[in-house]
Structure formats: structure tokens, C-alpha cells
Amino acid sequence: MSVPILELKGVEKRFGGNQVLRGVDLDVASATSLVVIGGSGSGKSVMLKNALGLMIPDAGQILFDGQDVTRSQGKDRDRMRARIGMLFQSAALFDSLRVWENVAFRLVQVDRLRRKEAKARAIETLRKVRLGPDVADLYPAEISGGMQKRVGLARAIISQPELIFFDEPTTGLDPITADAINDLIVEQVEALGAATVSITHDMASARKIADEIAMLFEGKIIWRGAASDVDVSGNPYVEQFVQGLAEGPIQPGF
């Protein structure tokens, strides 16, 4: 078996007295799509931030293409990050920059590409997410939430990354726009041949974009299997979550 593009080994993270991750083990093979599902407060976002190197785990190891994410520094880390894309839950577009400047941020500020060339690349990438060149010169506040998600997706894919993280890609969108975003994710990921890790509690989104689904509960992966098996997992936690039932082993997180 080839080396997974991403591996989490026994990752633990605690905030004060609250142990959020209790030894997460997970691996993602190249060009596969893994969706991690789990309720609010189950530790999905913390796991993602650790995998991205935005947080340092208290214990365990995170490897990207065999390289330790938590130990890499300077140019090594920059090179590693250039191979990773991220779509944030709120798109996290920079308010003070125009849409094309957001999309081409890495090209202009990090790779130091000329602005004219970077803008052409940004417009080309915006077209891939079904946004016209007229959007390029607008500011993020001037476009809708669904368009912001597409711009965020364009920013995530412009450098043709090998691994893309999606944090709740459909949250806050109406069902039609959410489905369109899911289609775009599938289409662009297939075109790039990238591996993806998505976290969501939107089962429609999970079914659409996942090759595999894993469930995180109380800081541990409690089930993992093919996306087609999620309805016949035989795991009471997964069944309750997939069916969206208040009754079951998982207590609603009020």
C-alpha cells in the first residue's frame, strides 16, 4: 500500500480540563475523499486545525506525505502548505481585498507572481467554480454567501494542491446552493486528483462528496467505512447520527 498523504496517529488535544481529542487515528490515501462526521462539540474542528498545523497537539503525530506537520519549520513548512488547500466554514475571505486578490493571494504574496498574471489565473479559476470575470473586482461583502464559498473554493484550488480540507462546506447555505457547492467540490477534486478531508454534519453533503466516512465521537474515531455502507454500519452511534434521531446513545448537545 502506498504512503497515505495524511496520517494522524494517536492525536490528543486538551483545553484546560476539557479533553477534546482522545487519541485520533486516521489516514487518507492520495486521491480519495474522506468525510468526518460528528455532532457539535465532538472535536471535528479541533482535529482539522491540528491537521493543518494551526494548533499543536498535546500528544501524537500528524504526517503529511510522511513529513511531520508539527515539527516542520520555515521554508519546509511553506512548501508543505503550498501543497495543501483549505476551504473555511465562513470562507474566511479577506475583507480588504478584492475577490481576485483573495483567490490569487498565495500567487501574489507568497509566490510573488506579477499581479497581471495572477489576476488572469484568478479569473480562470473563478470560471472553474462558475463565477464570471465581473465578480473578480468586487469585494467579499458585495457578494452572496454562496458566491463567497465558491471564491473560497477557488482560493483553495488555485495552487493545484494535493490535499484539500473542507470545514463544513455547506453550512449556512440553502439546499440548492449547498448541492451546487457539493457538485463543484466533486468536480474540482476529480479534476485535480487531490485527496480531501471534509468535516460536516450535513449527511446529504457527506453522501455526495465522500468515498469514505468516519465518525468522531467524544474525541475518538468510532467508525470508519465506505460511504455506501454508512446506512448499514451496524454502529448504534452512526445509525442515530445518520438518521438524525434525538433518542439513542448520543445525548443531544444542548
Binding site: 494551526l54 483549505m86 498565495r106
Partner: peptide
């Protein structure tokens, strides 16, 4: 602060731009 809570500072980091420098 608004950039911190809307994850724009995290986004900068993932794009290899140090928030302290940029």
C-alpha cells in the same frame, strides 16, 4: 479581532503568509 474570529488569520497562515509579517 474581527479577522481572528472570522478565521481570516487562520486563512493567512494556511496560505503561508505569517500574520505577524503580513
Amino acid at each position: 479581532g474581527a479577522m481572528r474570529v472570522t478565521e481570516q488569520i487562520d486563512a493567512l497562515t494556511t496560505l503561508s503568509a505569517s500574520p505577524k509579517r503580513y
